[in-house]
């Protein structure tokens, strides 16, 4: 009886691990998409509205879901607070510390951090160029992420179940 309970638990845990891993694969392209929406919004704010950066970031944060929204809002608040922090520092700190809570990886992070180094520091045309460049990089990452999703999402799920089943069989 106890053995059976243990087997069920192992099977359940293995399945869950597999599903979580699969969910990360499914989440990544979705979050990159949100990030692209955010940058598109930022592009409009800079290009047409000429909105000051703290306001623009705040508005961006209202338009996208967490956890990205929280990070944009944090940067906007930090710039408004008047602590003398530069955009680059604030951007780097926030995204570096908040990155593990997202499903995204190194490539997206690099593109975003590079954008942070130039944001607010040059004329409009130049800003738009940098934003578009970052968007282009993110789009490539998104395509790769989708490919990964197709390839690994189901695999992860079945691997979880099968791995658990293997353990159960070995235990029996």
């Amino acid at each position: 009886m106890l053995k059976l309970l243990g087997a069920v638990l192992v099977l359940f845990a293995g399945t869950m691990i597999g599903y979580l891993q699969a969910a990360r694969f499914a989440e990544r392209p979705r979050q990159i998409r949100y990030l692209l929406h955010a940058l598109q919004r930022l592009e409009t704010e800079i290009g047409y509205g000429q909105t000051p950066l703290p306001d623009a970031l705040h508005r961006v944060s209202l338009a996208i879901p967490p956890p990205l929204a929280g990070m944009f809002a944090a940067i906007a608040a930090e710039l408004r607070a008047g602590t003398g922090v530069t955009v680059r520092e604030s951007w780097e700190n926030t995204f570096s510390s908040g990155w593990p809570s997202t499903a995204m990886r190194g490539g997206e992070r690099e593109a975003l951090l590079r954008l942070g180094g130039t944001l607010g520091g040059s004329g409009r045309e130049d800003q738009l160029k940098h934003v578009r460049l970052a968007m282009l990089q993110l789009q490539t990452e998104e395509a790769a992420a989708r490919e990964d999703q197709q390839r690994y999402e189901k695999l992860c799920r079945s691997l979880g179940v099968l791995g658990a089943a293997l353990v159960v069989i070995l235990m029996m």
């Binding site: 800079i46 000429q50 623009a56 003398g84 607010g120 520091g121 004329g123 409009r124 130049d126």
Partner: peptide, 17 residues
Amino acid sequence: CKALLEKVTDHSLYAVE
């Protein structure tokens, strides 16, 4: 000076071209 320029332009050089 960098921080001052950022601050007085509200971190947005593009808006004060």
